[in-house]
Design a protein around this nucleic acid. Structure first.
Lengths: 171, 171
DNA sequence: TATTGTTATACTCTATAACTATA
DNA sequence: TATAGTTATAGAGTATAACAATA
């Protein structure tokens, strides 16, 4: 016999509601970018240089690698990213931003930050930072369980010596 | 020209990662309940007595009303809820828990609480409460924009005078 | 005329399976 | 043998549209 739930203290509902609001706002903010908010996240990760292989990107975002293939097809044909062969493992591709992709990322950063600020508007600035921090800690802890156990050190964009290559496109 | 993002401070990613972890844990926790975690939420809302019509339930959960029809079909044929005609508006149905539904809800409460505790394990108890509170505030603020503007006063389960009815079932 | 709920249908998203190429 | 990526296909989830009953 458990007592009835404390009204309105449903973590699942709150999480879902915030997630829906975020996705709606983020979708509007990023506009026509291939893949929407997820496309932005790929650009962001590619820029930061961690998780450069398609598989790593897919796992970090919690989707199947086949989804990443389609998403990168769209980002690539939009001229935002390039697939380069990984010199260390010729099975893998390294995802690199083009100049247009870097520019687009900067634009999206701004728009998304504004959308986030509006989403978190009910909280004062200090509370917003607390929420971001707590979410990050929960996300990082739970993500590292399925992700790569040790985060790869930050590398800069241009450290990539590998030349661009355009493997047989299709679709 | 915006400066590069502060590494790992991506609200969207953190939200998505936490959401995925929650859904995986919640799905495992609720087991074979129709609709999974969402089915639980319907039971919970029906018990608390707010948002009793199918449309209100659907909007509170952020899904189309047709989705709610299918979900309630499953919950009803599992014997967990009943559809009763709303005496005040004969177009609408009031969703009421059966005895089995109430029992199931108590069981699910326990399981989900355990799953939530594990999800929030990286935080100490005080921080967990802070996170729940902040999420609730953001969720409530953003949800009320699309939901019913004024929450209906809490009513108890047995205040329902309307007799059970089983409209033409199908499917 | 507008709204609640139902039903059938279509669409979107995602994963599964099979394949190529590398390791 | 196992892994990264691709491709075609199938499945789950969701929404759209048309309808009946009621307001």
């Amino acid at each position: 016999m458990t007592t009835p739930p404390t009204a309105e203290s449903d973590l699942g509902w709150a999480l879902g509601a915030v997630m829906r609001s975020y996705l709606r706002a983020a979708h509007d903010a990023v506009g026509a970018v291939p893949g929407g908010p997820r496309g932005y996240q790929v650009l962001s990760m590619a820029f930061r240089g961690e998780q450069r292989s398609q598989l790593a990107l897919a796992q970090h975002l919690g989707v199947d690698r086949t989804v990443m293939t389609y998403l990168l097809d769209d980002l690539e044909s939009a001229g935002l990213v390039e697939r380069r062969p990984d010199p260390a493992d010729r099975r893998a591709r390294r995802i690199v931003l083009t100049d247009a992709g870097t520019e687009k990322l900067c634009d999206l950063e701004r728009r998304l930050r504004a959308a986030e600020d509006e989403l978190l508007d009910p909280l004062d600035p200090a509370e917003q930072e607390v929420l971001r921090g707590l979410l990050d800690r929960v996300a990082t802890r739970t993500a590292t369980a399925t992700d790569n156990p040790c985060a790869v050190a930050q590398e800069m964009q241009d450290e990539l010596a590998a030349p661009a290559v355009t493997p047989r496109r299709r679709r």
